[in-house]
Design a protein around this nucleic acid. Structure first.
Lengths: 239, 239
DNA sequence: GAAATAGTGTCTCTTAGACAATATGCG
DNA sequence: CGCATATTGTCTAAGAGACACTATTTC
């Protein structure tokens, strides 16, 4: 905090933006929501949704919620949204100094409400193609996306974030599929079932069951109130 | 990121600061480094060390390192420093809009090099007295400190951050004392010993031993290269 | 030897992981 | 019934937690 001995000197002011890393599991892949930039710099390139704070009075979290609605049509009340990290190297934006506060959002694979609003060409892209550089993104958004994926992978272990990837109500198979996709790792269906049903507050049974082509119908659940999972579900150790 | 359809409108600029939550274990307590504010607002009150970025060109991480040196005399090369979270509610600073990027630092209990520089009245305060409001701090620094403590407590579980609280070389007893103090929880010395010595890369034996009054001398260790601990040391479940 | 602290070993119980068996729908 | 998927159960091995014992120093 400001505690300079001399009060009399100019405090530099910089532009503050928010960026959103919106993740989902879709087509058996972890995917991220990208938009096509309409303006320079990086015009026409893919980038994270986001933007500058609207005024000097706008709260940062509120700006994230607003940009989410404006650029993707998504409603922050229906999804997981958390602040992730701030990126502030001086050269990260060619127009000048921009400090951006990044948020991680997790949504189920539902049709994007791109209909109205400012949503231009928002679409899903597998994170795989971003991480291996076969899809290039604007600014330093590549490393932001890498950070977001790391964060999501880690949080599946010790929080109930996995359920935020599932449209409610969901089956345990669907939840397991989220874990398998995000971690890129197969999990034993029976052990997974035992584990997640044993975590108090993770899942709330609706009493309903799926109706489907073949196979026994699965029980349907909603996300419970628990946010932390204790003990965690650990990934296999680094290979 | 900036992707407004209309390019022609004023981008609000705000002051950006960095704040430092420097933690140590001292006198059997988790303590935090606070300074006495020399200027208004909150003049004379305790606050986290920190300050505005020096210029439009200064990197955020660099600003944290600089403020750490200026306000506490500590050298970022000798300690653990990581970005924690950004605080940006509009009313958090009475002087106007200030967005502050907060860093968590962890240091061993060594004499503060307060001798030279800008270090004014930097001193250690038990976090307990801040968390229970018996010590009041400026701005929203109370909740920042609470977040920093949460972060540190959590990171002891699945990282080797604990060793950053110890002056090198250190004994396993000293490391255990860090865990016990930060978590506020007794740990079995024998199980702890077995656990931490079993984590590859956590501890590097120096071959030296302590010399002391009574009791068998303890082996001395340095911090190893490992930063993540797999599997983690879990705290007892919430009681 | 007594006191103090370090370090090793052992036992038990919980739980993760592998895998078999049963349940319940559909055609 | 046969197929497909869900769910429960069983076994084993690894690890956490409790606790006893041995080791090495100083006085």
């Amino acid at each position: 905090m400001p505690t300079k001995s001399k009060d009399s000197w100019k405090i530099p002011k910089v532009a503050v933006a928010v960026d959103l890393a919106v993740l989902t599991v879709r087509d058996d892949e972890l995917q991220i929501l990208l938009i096509e930039r309409a303006i320079s710099p990086f015009r026409g390139q893919l980038a994270l949704p986001g933007g500058f704070i609207a005024s000097e009075r706008e709260d940062i979290d509120a700006a994230a919620v607003r940009e989410l609605a404006e650029e993707t049509g998504l409603d922050a009340n229906t999804l997981h949204l958390e602040q992730m990290r701030t990126y502030g190297t001086p050269e990260r934006d060619p127009r000048g100094r921009v400090v951006t506060v990044c948020y991680l959002a997790v949504v189920p694979d539902l049709p994007l409400p791109t209909a109205g609003g400012d949503a231009r060409a928002a679409h899903w892209e597998p994170v795989r193609t971003v991480l291996d550089d076969s899809t290039s993104v604007a600014f330093d958004h590549g490393s932001i996306i890498a950070d977001a994926v790391d964060r999501a992978r880690g949080k599946l272990e010790y929080t109930t974030l996995g359920a935020a990837f599932c449209a409610s109500p969901f089956t345990i198979s669907e939840l397991r599929h989220v874990y398998e996709t995000v971690w890129g790792q197969r999990l034993d269906p029976r052990n997974f079932h035992r584990k997640v049903t044993g975590v108090e507050g993770f899942l709330v049974a609706t009493g309903e069951r799926t109706t489907r082509d073949g196979g026994r119908p699965a029980a349907l659940f909603r996300r419970g109130d628990a946010r932390l999972m204790h003990p965690p579900i650990l990934r296999a150790a680094k290979q």
